[in-house]
Amino acid sequence: MQIVIFTLGNEKFALDTKLVHGIEKMMSITKVPNAPYYVKGLINLRGSIITVVDLKTLLNKQNKDQEENIIIVEINQEKIGLIVNKVDEVIEIENDKIEKPVENNSYIKGIINLKEYIVTLLEGEALIEG
């Protein structure tokens, strides 16, 4: 499968590219008062209004690094933006390279051990529904 690898704090995460619609540079986000804690706000993506999720808050990760990118994913027919520090690369991996996660967490699909680092493969649907 093809995955897109990105950085969140000092960890690497990945998503199936099938979910990914595009990668955007950080842009101005309109706050939504009283929204769930992980919703960062709304962006204007070429005329469409898209909800942006603060991925680090959602995954409960501490991180003060600069956030450069918004990954636009499509989950349940709705586009959603995920804020990440930086998108690194898109790679092709064999399915058998995906190891079962140590943590039993519904939004973690598996662990991929690449030479340079370990990547946590996220489950898109679970992220948003859970």
Binding site: P36, I49, I50, T51, K79
Partner: peptide, 27 residues
């Protein structure tokens, strides 16, 4: 008026959002 996404369906404070002339989103 553009509807809000599923993640914000519970936000009864807003009927939706709109994009203003300067491109910014406004609730």
């Amino acid at each position: 008026i553009k509807p809000l996404g599923k993640l914000l369906q519970k936000q009864k404070e807003y009927v939706g959002a709109t994009i203003l002339g300067d491109g910014l989103v406004t609730l």
